[in-house]
Structure formats: structure tokens, C-alpha cells
Amino acid sequence: MHRLLHVLRTDLRIAAGYLPGTAAPLPCDIHAFAAADDSVVPAGLMEDWRDYTIREFRVSRAPGGRHTVYDVSGELFAAIVRTGLART
């Protein structure tokens, strides 16, 4: 779990400085995770990630706010873990 939290925190730091580019969509699946009540990144904005892939795109939403992703006992964190385990 410690390793997963480190990855998620790093991902959020990278995302905070992200500026959209004009590169071609990626040839890989994208699975976005959203907290339904996040006041900084509303769940509806997650759909914009669809433009960055030519393959499968999915969004998983779970109850909670901005810091839900850090709650290791929460539904969103469990969904991220299940998704990662399913691909290994």
C-alpha cells in the first residue's frame, strides 16, 4: 500500500503541473479514477481524458471529495488496487 500511495502522490504532483499539448492520442487504454464530490476536479472533467487515447477509455467514480484517493480503506482506493491487480 505504501508503494501505491507514493505512486498516486507522484501522479497528482505531475497532474498539477500538466498543460495540454497537441500530441497524437496514445495507443493504450486509459482508466481514470474520480471522486464524485471533488471540488477541484469535478467528475465530469474526467471525460476529457477520452481525447488522449485511441483505445479503450473508462472512468470509475466513487463517493468522496478531494482527498478520497488517499483513504486506503475507501472505495476509490480499492478500485485502483483492483484495477492494478487485474493488469499484473
Rank of each mutant, 00 (worst) to 15 (best):
L26F: 11
R58N: 09
F77K: 05
M1V: 10
R82V: 00
A34V: 04
I30H: 05
V41L: 06
P42L: 11
S60Y: 09
G21N: 14
G21V: 10
A78L: 09
V72F: 05
G64I: 06
E47I: 03
A86G: 06
A78H: 14
F77N: 07
G44D: 10
P27A: 13
A16N: 09
Y70N: 12
A36R: 13
G44K: 06
R61W: 00
G21T: 11
F33R: 08
D51F: 01
D11Y: 08
A79D: 10
L76M: 12
F77S: 05
D48H: 13
A86M: 02
L45M: 13
S60D: 15
P25L: 12
G44S: 11
I14Q: 11
L85G: 00
A36P: 00
V69W: 15
R82Y: 00
T53N: 07
R3V: 06
A43T: 10
L4T: 10
L45A: 04
R3E: 12
V72L: 03
V81I: 01
V59K: 06
D11P: 00
T10W: 03
D38T: 02
S73H: 14
Y18C: 05
Y52E: 09
A78Y: 03
G17V: 01
I14T: 12
S39K: 08
D51M: 02
R9G: 02
R9I: 02
